[in-house]
Amino acid sequence: MTSNPPEKLLAAEDLIFGHTKKGCPPLALGGPLDLSLVPGELVCLLGPNGAGKSTLLRTLSGFLKPLKGSINIQGTALGDYSPRALARTRACLSTREELPAGMSAFDLVALGRHPHSKWTGKLTAADHSAIDAAFNDSGSTAFRTRLMEELSDGERQRVALARLLSQEAPIAFLDEPAAFLDLPSRIEVLGNLARIAKDRRIAILLTTHDLESALRHADRLWLLGHGGKWFQGIPEDLVLSGAFPKVFSSPNLEFNRSSGNFEPEAKIQNGRAIELIGNGVERIWTCRALERSGWNPSDGEEENSELSVIIVNEENQTLWKIQEAGKTDRTARSLQECLQLLPKT
């Protein structure tokens, strides 16, 4: 191992990954790639469905053999690890796993100590402190004695995370940890993981579909598109370099570089012109509402506009004033009312 910082926990060189099925030639999904994971970082692997995110994750976890290239974990080739030694080096979590009924949260988290305990499976003081810390860091101490099937999806996810942490592996792989969660828990998950990675000085690699959270919390992103298209870097660089539209190519969506999100392609060409006067957050949402209804709002530079909407902010209330040539002004108290008052497009 080199002493040069940053010390690499995982290093893959010339890695080609894919499927091997009996009777078929191996199908490469991507590569050759040079990859690395360093302590304290959260890396999110993003890409469209079927691009091979899970395959790459499973290859790095040691469940699938790489088609070509090498994977080293802490300086030792992945293939040279015994199952037990590997389990002390990397922990894996998949949302697709189903738990049997009648298992308590503690039972599950204690299973994380499996690669550390002797054949008797007896938990030592060190095991207990690792379990306590895992419950604590994942915010699931309250569910310790509960049965897994009694917990909500979000709670179960936290306990599953505790199980991963109790394994005390320097590398953690998570396959879609945010799937099946409601919105608040989903936003929480990645933030928590970023914090845990830093606190514990471990590397966390996860796959997700949640672009927004990934852009906000990931230290680095790996983008994998169909046909092995590959980009890696810190989120902001990838946004600015236009990597996202290349990976998530879709005819009806457009990547908005300022919001970092995919949005339906603007219907500017065929929308009917309307002047919009006003600014602030109200302007953004008024714009959206108008665009969806087939309007093409403009800045209000032109002098003689036939139709205009003016946003008026009056003591704790927002009003929309509609001015139309040859008609009296109308006032709407909500955007819904405003859209109804506008003439048909």
Binding site: A85, C92, E97, L99, L111, H114, P115
Partner: peptide
């Protein structure tokens, strides 16, 4: 009976049992 620890690991399924270091 001596395989009780492995049987615990199998509760999480084949792949997770392997991830936990089970042969």
């Amino acid at each position: 009976g001596l395989q009780f620890k492995s049987m615990d690991a199998f509760l999480l399924g084949e792949e997770q049992a392997r991830a936990l270091g089970e042969n």
